[in-house]
């Protein structure tokens, strides 16, 4: 059966994703109400609690738009409902896109792209995106209480233990990116198609990020950082369209 990318925007998919997002919102409301009541009960100032809510809402508004841009960026390959779910629950743009690509390659596609998408690829990608990122939640269920209680005890030594963890996380992503850059260069140099588009897109995206970071760090426009990732992606994707139209 011929697969059409528009099937990934079926009302049934919106319904499934919408129901899950509603359930997560209900959990947020539950925690919010409990925290508010507990705050009042232990004598915290109502004004302070209100200010926390107002400040957090305004603080979140602009970064939320950048996450929405991520949904738009992924919607061309995965439809709208799945990126909507993934970026509303657990997910983060850098994670979702890379895991979706790994899943696509394991199912026999050349990478995450709209032209090769099938129904099986779609559901496999959805499952892999979910299972790959649930481990923070699993850790909270298994060790959350013990870890939190331990943290409340006074420390026996000054060591935090988190020093290498931060560097290791950075190194893991560097390894991931290096493998992809190598594959793009190899694809351009050694494969018959000599596909240059990923290299152009990557270079434009890196340049766009450099411009964003220049304004964030040198000109101190810190709110712009919220848009740097999604903005760089959209600029480079626009470049791909322009190159595609010219060549």
């Amino acid at each position: 059966m011929e697969f059409n990318i528009s099937q990934l925007n079926a009302p049934g998919l919106f319904l499934i994703c919408g129901a899950i997002i509603l359930a997560v919102m209900a959990v947020c409301v539950l925690f919010m109400v409990r925290a508010w009541r507990a705050g009042i009960a232990i004598g915290m100032d109502r004004k302070k609690l209100k200010r926390t809510i107002t400040a957090s809402a305004t603080f979140t508004l602009i970064p939320s738009i950048s996450i929405l841009l991520g949904v738009i960026a992924l919607s061309g390959t995965l439809g709208t409902p799945l990126p909507w779910l993934r970026l509303s629950v657990i997910g983060a743009l850098h994670y979702e896109a890379s895991v979706a690509d790994i899943a696509a390659r394991n199912i026999g596609m050349t990478g995450l792209n709209a032209t090769e998408m099938t129904a099986t690829a779609y559901t496999t990608i959805a499952l892999l995106m979910t299972v790959g990122i649930i481990w923070g939640m699993v850790c909270m269920v298994l060790f959350g209480k013990r870890y939190c209680n331990r943290l409340q005890r006074p420390k026996e030594s000054g060591k935090s233990g988190a020093g290498f963890g931060d560097l290791a996380m950075k190194a893991m992503f560097i390894g991931l990116i290096s493998a992809y850059i190598g594959s793009y260069i190899g694809g351009f140099v050694s494969l018959p198609a000599h596909d240059y588009m990923p290299l152009i897109v990557m270079a434009v995206s890196a340049c766009a990020m450099a411009v964003f970071l220049y304004f964030v760090e040198k000109k101190k426009i810190s709110w712009l950082d919220n848009f740097s990732m999604a903005g760089s992606m959209l600029v480079s994707m626009a470049a791909a369209v322009v190159v595609g139209l010219i060549v």
Binding site: A73, G111, M202, A206, S236, A240
Partner: peptide, 16 residues
């Protein structure tokens, strides 16, 4: 071409 290169777009920004 834009949606076929989402990953390259992501890793370009992340690489920098």
């Amino acid at each position: 071409p834009a949606f076929n290169n989402v990953i390259a777009a992501l890793f370009g920004a992340m690489a920098y």
